[in-house]
Design a protein around this nucleic acid. Structure first.
Lengths: 163, 163
DNA sequence: TTGACTCAGTTCTAATTTGGAACCTATTGT
DNA sequence: ACAATAGGTTCCAAATTAGAACTGAGTCAA
C-alpha cells in the first residue's frame, strides 16, 4: 500500500494522517499554535528546506487547515493562519506535547509550560469524557464498529479488552 | 535539518515525533490499541511492506513503546504489546480519531464508535483541564517557556494571543 | 519421511521522497 | 545603481520506501 492512498481507508486515524502525517507537518502546526505565521519564520524556526516547507504549507492550505491571507500589497505577501479546522488539531499537538514532556524530557523538565486562562493554573490538558467529566485512558474505552464500517467490513470485530 | 535530529530539539512535540512521527508508526499504534499483537496481523491489516513493518516494530520496542514478548516456544514466536509508555499515547491516537471523524468522515459517519466504560455512554474523549475540569481549546491556553527552555534559549517568547 | 503449510522475519531493487544549495521575482531603502 | 527583504522555485544527490522474492524454524498430515 502506498502512503498516498491511506486517506481512502475507512479509518479516521488514517484519514487524519493523510493530512498531517507527513514529516514536518505537525511541527509546522506546533509553530502555528505558538503564533508563527510567515514563511520566513517557519523556515528559521524549523530548519527544514524551503522546498519542503512551501510544499507542506500549500498542502495544509489545500486541506483547509491553514489559510493563506495577504498581509501586504506591493510586494504582495501572504501569511498562514490556522482555520477552525486547523485549530481543531490542538488536541493532537497538546497530546504529543504531554507525552513528550512525560517520557522524553531532559532533567530540566518540559521546554514549555501551559497556563489555563480559565482557572489560571499551570496544567497540561488531559483526555476526559465530555458527558461525565471523568479522565479517560485506553482501558476506560470500549471500541465498536460504526455504521460506515459495518457497511464496508461487516465481519470486523475489535478485541474486547486491552490487557 | 535532518529528520533524524529532531529528537534533540528542546521541544516535546519534536521529541515525541522522533518516536512516533514516522510513516505508518501511528497506524501501527492504532492497531495496537484495537488489540492487534502479531506481525502477521499488523501486516494484513496495514498493508505496508513487511520490511517497513519489521523496522517500525523494532524501533517502537527500542523506545519502550511496545514490548516483544514470547507467546510460543518451538518455534519461538513473539508478539508486540503496548507498554505503559505505549498506552500513554492513547490521547494522541484518540485526538487524531476525533479530528478525522469530524473533518474527514464520509456521509456514513465515523468508522468506529467509542463507549466510555465508566458512564456507559457513546462519546469521543475531549481535552479538559485536569484542575478545574473545563474543556479546553487552543484559545484557552497560554504558553510560557519552561525552565529547560529559559536555559537554552533565554530570548524566546511565545506570542501572547492566538487569533 | 516427504511435502505442504505457518509465522516471522530478511534481502534485493526500483521508485519515491527528502535535504540543501542556488537561483528568481518584486519591491523598498540608501 | 545596488544591497536588502520576503517568499518562493529549480535542480540534483542522498535517503527512504514499496513490493516481491527469499529464508529458516518448526508443525502437521499422508
Amino acid at each position: 500500500m502506498r502512503w498516498r492512498d491511506i486517506g481512502d481507508l475507512p479509518c479516521s486515524v488514517a484519514r487524519a494522517l493523510s493530512v498531517v502525517g507527513d514529516r514536518w507537518t505537525l511541527l509546522v502546526l506546533r509553530d502555528a499554535f505558538l503564533g508563527v505565521r510567515r514563511f520566513g519564520d517557519f523556515h528559521a524556526d524549523l530548519g527544514t528546506s524551503r522546498h519542503r516547507l512551501a510544499d507542506r504549507l500549500h498542502k495544509l492550505v489545500e486541506h483547509g487547515v491553514l489559510a493563506r491571507v495577504p498581509y501586504a500589497e506591493r510586494p504582495r505577501r501572504f501569511e498562514y493562519r490556522l482555520t477552525e479546522k486547523g485549530r481543531d488539531l490542538y488536541p493532537v499537538v497538546v497530546s504529543l506535547t504531554r507525552w513528550g514532556d512525560r517520557w522524553m524530557a531532559g532533567r530540566d523538565g518540559p521546554p514549555i509550560e501551559l497556563v489555563h486562562r480559565g482557572c489560571g493554573r499551570r496544567i497540561m490538558p488531559t483526555l476526559a469524557c465530555p458527558e461525565c467529566g471523568e479522565g479517560v485512558g485506553a482501558r476506560d474505552m470500549q471500541v465498536r464498529p460504526g455504521r460506515a464500517l459495518r457497511k464496508k467490513a461487516p465481519a470486523w470485530r475489535p478485541t474486547e479488552e486491552l490487557r
